[in-house]
Design a protein around this nucleic acid. Structure first.
Lengths: 111, 111
DNA sequence: TTTGTCTATCGTAAGAAAACGATAAACTAA
DNA sequence: TTAGTTTATCGTTTTCTTACGATAGACAAA
């Protein structure tokens, strides 16, 4: 049996895992970095700076979009992408609510 | 060709992706949550509260340990685990240095 | 209209990940 | 010493992920 037993966990756990999964490939980190550094949407040009085939980059973009971390719109023959900062806020908030709040009291109570 | 082309990216990107990968499964989030809620190491008992086989939990624990997110010591026939908060700090720091610093200036400059 | 450009999708192949049962290893306790 | 407990590892199967080339679709420009 190899099917992922994700349904056995809480929605919060699944949600956080899902965000993390979207961030779990260096190509996707690189894409997000490129988008974050821009002051506007990027239409095209993302493929050029990555060491991957066009179809592979498109696939990574799709995953980031599905995870909600980026927004995409079509502009003629080109596609434009930008970061969805609200999704990042949500990720940070969920992450902190699970861990950071617990940190202070426990920091020195371990083996 | 399916081999991950991780070596084509920067160390920082790989590092962050690596952390995220460790967090990308709800079982591992659940494990970290359990460890975070305790005021001490947990020796045993982690398997009991998860809906997974003992060998599967052991595998997840190993991945978290390899990622540096938890520390493990052997105590007789039992194994004890606790969160490595420094690794969490490092993750947060890397995450912020890539994204949060860029956020303010760009928040309203997108399509 | 035809041609060129850009991006998404399809099909495919290889590797990684997730899950389990069975077993081995390490220690405790009888 | 022997039996029991706990956890790690091995072997295996199934599914997911990553990657590519090829192709199709959408639009712009000649």
């Amino acid at each position: 049996m190899a099917i992922a037993k994700t349904e056995e966990f809480t929605a919060k756990e699944q949600n956080l895992a899902s965000f993390a999964k979207a961030l779990s490939h260096p190509a996707r980190i690189a894409i997000l970095k490129i988008l974050a550094e821009q002051n506007a949407c990027i239409c095209g040009k993302i493929v050029e700076v990555l060491p991957l085939a066009q179809s592979t980059v498109s696939q990574h973009l799709k995953e980031l979009k599905n995870a909600g971390l980026i927004d995409g719109t079509v502009d003629g023959p080109k596609s434009c992408y930008c970061i969805n900062w609200k999704a990042f806020e949500k990720f940070n908030a969920e992450f902190n609510s699970l861990f950071s709040a617990l940190k202070i009291q426990n920091e020195k109570a371990c083996c």
